[in-house]
């Protein structure tokens, strides 16, 4: 049941979002560095946004600067996750939510394709086997 179902009237609206802390700007440089690393060595990188002292306004600022890309991936796994490409190709904004829809963790992943999107060889093998079984039954 969501809170909307309960007739609660909020008297005190939450205070206005705290402003920018100044912690978001250095992140852009770090992302740029990770991209350089990706291009040179192919090694991927991840920044754990939940572990950094970022205000909601910081996150909004960062999201605004990175922009929206062409690909948006939705993953249904114990709650919805979104793995969205930013306007900066190779930079992915990854948000994990729990089954209640609350954000559990947020990452910036610098990679050709986010790790979670890739199919695991073992899973592909299981898929192939079941397909073979299906064909043999036809």
């Amino acid at each position: 049941m969501s809170l909307d179902a309960i007739p609660v009237h909020v008297i005190n609206t939450p205070p206005a979002e705290p402003g920018l802390s100044g912690n978001a700007l250095p992140l852009l440089r770090e992302i740029s560095e990770l991209l350089r690393h990706l291009l040179e060595t192919g090694a991927t990188g991840t920044i754990d946004l939940s572990a950094l002292p970022l205000t909601p306004a910081d996150l909004e600022w960062l999201q605004d600067k990175l922009g929206e890309g062409e690909i948006a991936v939705t993953l249904q796994a114990n709650g919805e996750s979104t793995l969205n490409e930013t306007a900066c190709s190779g930079v992915w904004w990854v948000v994990h939510r729990n089954t209640q829809g609350a954000v559990t963790t947020q990452f910036i992943e610098v990679a050709w394709v986010p790790e979670l999107v890739k199919a695991h060889p073992q899973d592909v093998k299981i898929g192939q086997e079941s397909l073979e079984l299906l064909i043999s039954d036809l």
């Binding site: 991840t46 939940s50 796994a77 114990n78 994990h96 559990t104 963790t105 790790e115 979670l116």
Partner: peptide, 19 residues
């Protein structure tokens, strides 16, 4: 597997381990 990977990513973040 992806549910499990997601779980481990969350757990690592919670425990302040590198991503």
């Amino acid at each position: 597997r992806r549910t499990f990977l997601k779980y481990c990513a969350t757990l690592a973040s919670m425990m302040a381990l590198p991503p």
